[in-house]
C-alpha cells in the first residue's frame, strides 16, 4: 500500500531534496500567511475608518483582565509551539508530543476564556447588532477564534501523527510549517488586543 508518510522520509532521498521540499512547503505557508495578513488588514482598515468617521461610534470599554489573560495564554502557547518544533528537530518524539499537547491545551484555555467573555457580553445585551463597535469586536475576535480552532485541529492531527511515529530528526516539516501558522495566530492577537481592549 502506498504510504505518503513513509515516502516523505525515505532514506534514499538526498539531503538536498529534503531541504528543497522543506523550502517549498515553507513558501506555501508564507504565501498563505501573506493572504491572511491581507484578510485581517481589510477588517483592521474598516475598523479604523469606522472608529474615526462613523457617526456615534464609541469604543466600548471591554474587560481588560480577559484580554490580558488571553494575551498571556497565546504568548505561552507560542513558546510551547516553538519548543515542540525545537524538539522535533532533535528527534525527541515524546517531548515533541508533550509540547504539541500543551499548545493544544492552551488554545482550549484561550477559547474557554473567550467563551466566558462572550457570555458576559450576551448577558449584558451586547450583541453584534447592538452598535458598530460590538459589530467589529465580534467580527474580528470571531474570525480570530476560527483561526485558533483551525490551529487546534491541525495540532490534534500533528499530535496523532507524531505518536504514530511519522516524524523524526530528518523529517519534521509539517510540525515546523504548522508552527508558522500557530505563531501567526498569536501575531494577529498581538494587534487585536490593544486595538479592541486598550485604545
Amino acid at each position: 500500500m502506498f504510504d505518503p508518510a513513509a515516502q516523505d522520509h525515505h532514506p534514499t532521498l538526498s539531503p538536498a531534496f529534503h531541504r528543497e521540499r522543506r523550502d517549498m512547503r515553507a513558501m506555501g505557508m508564507w504565501l498563505f500567511l501573506g493572504s491572511e495578513v491581507m484578510f485581517f488588514t481589510a477588517f483592521f482598515a474598516a475598523y479604523i475608518v469606522a472608529r474615526s468617521a462613523a457617526p456615534g461610534f464609541v469604543a466600548m470599554p471591554l474587560e481588560r483582565g480577559f484580554g490580558t489573560l488571553n494575551t498571556i495564554v497565546l504568548l505561552t502557547s507560542s513558546l510551547t509551539m516553538a519548543l515542540a518544533v525545537l524538539n522535533s528537530k532533535r528527534g525527541e518524539r515524546v517531548k515533541t508530543g508533550r509540547y504539541i499537547a500543551l499548545t493544544f491545551l492552551l488554545a482550549c484555555v484561550f477559547l474557554v476564556v473567550k467563551g466566558i467573555e462572550y457570555a458576559h457580553h450576551f448577558e449584558a445585551g451586547d450583541f453584534p447588532s447592538h452598535d458598530i463597535f460590538f459589530g467589529f469586536y465580534f467580527l474580528l475576535t470571531g474570525f480570530h477564534g476560527l483561526h485558533v480552532l483551525g490551529g487546534m485541529i491541525t495540532l490534534a492531527i500533528l499530535w496523532w501523527r507524531n505518536r504514530r511515529g511519522d516524524f523524526n530528526k530528518d523529517y519534521n516539516d509539517p510540525i515546523e510549517i504548522a508552527g508558522l501558522y500557530w505563531h501567526f495566530v498569536d501575531l494577529v492577537w498581538i494587534f487585536l488586543f490593544p486595538a479592541l481592549y486598550l485604545l
Binding site: R19, L86, K89, K169, E176
Partner: peptide
C-alpha cells in the same frame, strides 16, 4: 559536507 549530512533543520 553539506550535501552528505542529513538536514537537521533550519532551526539547528
Amino acid at each position: 559536507s553539506a550535501a552528505t549530512t542529513a538536514p537537521s533543520g533550519v532551526h539547528d
